[in-house]
Design a protein around this nucleic acid. Sequence first.
DNA 1: CGATAATAGTTGAAAATGTAACTATCAAGG
DNA 2: CCTTGATAGTTACATTTTCAACTATTATCG
Lengths: 142, 142
Amino acid sequence: MSDFDLTDFLPYLLNRAAEKASRDFQAVYKRDYGMLRTEWRVLFHLGIYGAMTARKICQRGELHKTKVSRAVAALQSKRFLKRQRSQIDGREELLRLTNSGYLVFRHLRDQAADYHLALAQHFSEDEFQQFKASLKKIIADR
Amino acid sequence: MSDFDLTDFLPYLLNRAAEKASRDFQAVYKRDYGMLRTEWRVLFHLGIYGAMTARKICQRGELHKTKVSRAVAALQSKRFLKRQRSQIDGREELLRLTNSGYLVFRHLRDQAADYHLALAQHFSEDEFQQFKASLKKIIADR
DNA sequence: CGATAATAGTTGAAAATGTAACTATCAAGG
DNA sequence: CCTTGATAGTTACATTTTCAACTATTATCG
């Protein structure tokens, strides 16, 4: 019918691979903590890089501020983080994980590391490095 | 705070790369034809592989049947495809692009090829082949 | 044949997302 | 200071997606 090969079209491949990886890993944070993808991302940003404002999370993760705003509200209602209004700039809030939020982060971080390792099994060390480098090229491309 | 590197976590990288590629290419089919991602996928399946049932599209593209059902309805209302109830199995419908649907497919296929080429520019031939092979590994992994 | 189960596809309600408009605070120039 | 414009974050509304229940048809097996 046509010689265009869908299974070679990069956006299609990327989407299917991402959907698959997301579904697999989502199973963990959704089942165990009822979290959504953006909540997971926010939790990880705070867990890894420490307390920061929502704006910083938006910048670092290229997430829209409404997504982050909702994720923060959800994480707060689960008591995984606290907000602290800045004394210097009254618009900003510093977001900081609570103890239980940090425990959850560590649990999920370990699960993530396990899953990452399981995926890496499919590749040689070189292949895997190159694969990640290629993905970063796509992301970095403005 | 933690030595886990988010920017090296494969599901995260995959998601960001996929989001970026999707956003870029979505601009074309959304702007020109008001189509959604699943509509685009269904159109491409029919354009490339010829007429088939919704069920086949679900299987081939790993799409949920409600998504496909709604995409088919949308494409039909745009007059891009026709349905034909099977004589053999009264539950099935054969989906077939109309002439205008096929024209749209060809236009988008060309745009896709262009975009694909633009992405490929960032890689050597070998890198690009390897990149696609890696993505296929992820997808194929059951 | 007739009951039960399976399959193709649709639909409605709930959840999630995107877009734009909104509040509150800060910055800069006159 | 005071007006205008920018920024941090929230909210409302429309669009999409997901999940489960539904209809209609075919398959299986006593």
